[in-house]
Design a binder for these strands. Sequence first.
DNA 1: CAGGGTCTAT
DNA 2: ATAGACC
Length: 698
Amino acid sequence: MDNSDGEMEEDESEWKACFVDSAAVCPSTSVAATSGSIIKTPESVHRVILHFDLDCFYAQVEMIRNPALRDVPLGIQQKYIIVTCNYVARERGVTKLMSVTDAKEKCPELVLVKGEDLTHYREMSYKVTEVLMSYCPLVERLGFDENFVDVTEMVEQRLARTSEPNSFSFKGHVFNHLSADAKASRHPRLAMGSHIAAELREAIHSKLGLTGCAGVATNKLLAKLVSGTFKPNQQTVLLQENIGDIMGCLSGLRKVPGVGHQTARRLQALGLVSVKDLQVYPVNDLSREFGGPTAQRLKNLALGIDESAVTPTGAPQSLSDEDSFKKMCSVKEVVEKIQELLSSLVGRMHTDGRQPQTFRLTIRRYSATNKWFSRESRQCPIPGSVGQKIISGSPEDAASLLVPLAMKLFHKMVECGAAFHLTLINVCFSNLQSRGPAVSGKGAITSFFTQSASPRKSQISSSQNRDSSTQNADGCLLGRQVSACSRIAPPKGQVTSKGACSSEEPLHGFKWEQSCVCAVEENHDEASCSTERIDLDESRAPPNVDPEVFKLLPEEIRKELLSPAYSKSPSGQSASEAPRMSENELRENDSATKASVKRRRSAGINAIDGGDVTEQEELSLPRSSDSDFPGNVDPEVFSELPPDVQKDLLLEWKQQKPVLKAPSSRKPGKGSAAKGRDRKAEGRSGQSNNLFKYFKPA
DNA sequence: CAGGGTCTAT
DNA sequence: ATAGACC
């Protein structure tokens, strides 16, 4: 989620104030790189892309779960940092990725909620994607709190039905334009896009109770850049004539989505620091360092050009679980941690229903030097029988079979017997194989009719095939959905409605119906597609819940309150259940949280600067005694280092770990032009029927 | 930096 | 099969 990378983010002030300048580097229509016979000019077709970014996502989720947190400064804590915080906390100086100690210093009243378990965030995240998908199938997720939506087709359809295309305006802000001075009639598609964006934001708010920002532009890069212009809960449109402005105002290349740390450093080595530097740098020179394709892509990004398609995200390609810690150096601890991670992961895998073919174990060793990246991993195929247990057998059963497997991989990396110091362990299932109906003709839309009953967990002995069987009662409904989807099918054809119209699990059927109905309606009447098509009968509130209050709750919450599971155990955990409304509960929760805050307050301080100092390391570690340093290490310099750093360096060397690779430049490396263009699409579409579980967790 | 993910290059 | 790089 808030993975922006520290700096980024929150610098709305940055280009918000750049109403000047504008070298008008307006690449409005990229000249078709007529390299071949295809004459299409991607950017000239003017797509309308939306980018949605939820406001302080984790904090919002926690405030929904416990409304009492709404009015207090709230910080979501993962280990010893505040990954995000609500706006009350921001007013008091707390920022994202601030250490807990700094945050408490700035705001002593800060209430902290642990956010290491991502379950609730993951679930809510998929609900958001689902809402967006109910309007348009072309939705691509980016992390847990961002989504791109290609609404080009929807815009065209609406425009075609609009009688007076001249009488409407932009919804929300228009980048670099003061209020309503922008003439929507000159940008009908973007204007229409802004209305759709507003509708979708409203849908997300009314159905899930979440607020967020949206950006409207002609490509993903621009949509993402512009969406954060006006921060909490607002939206902004970027007109083609302002592309130069928005790009030119970025404070550095790092601010360009797609340019990470490494890339930025390599560019810097070439003397490129600002976006403008890159805009005017000769592509040929750039190619020498990055290779043709990458060079062109980088330069395009600097110019605000981005042809990449909005690729519908399907069900995840892998499921992983990890935990980081300050120090782990015994095999026993490792086994226990792996056991813990595995049982949780196996549970998720079980819910998913697909059978993983590959297992991977990743570790991060403590390193005094370049701490950040540097993870090592080993993977191996999962014996079919084991994979079976994960899905059908008892989770505990499968986990016990996987632990030995994990340990085997572990020993491939860590030469046990020698000391080691790990700071993270990750377990991951990938190569997820769908059982159930095979997607026959790749992408053939017909595959959507082939589903029958629960595609997973059920028997199905012959793992393969199993298509065209029955077309149950829902057949016609699905059929209509398909036609609706296909009508708005984008270039990538087949991929389009992946995920949609699949699974028919009883549990989820309800949801799909909604989507289908929506899609169909969409084709008949734009207006009806706005917000209220779900008839979650607002009938009556559950006993002991004020009907008035009930009506005001977001749809999702109402559903939960009405669900049988909810009324079942009235007690439950204070934190892990649906939101409570009773004042008693709120108070309890509040004080409980505060108590934990206090506890952590003192503990946190140790954790922070204590780090390597407090622990009087067990000295059983390799004595620095001798010489075997890597050749490039000056013994003099080495001896000046703090003892613990010396120790760790020695450890690293002994584990023959290449610690610091020269961040040198790389060789071009022939860029193969075109490749397996659809691998992505194919793979994903094959899993479409599983996507559903992510949208509506049991 | 936390906990997830995705994709690409070797 | 692994390491990166990015979000």
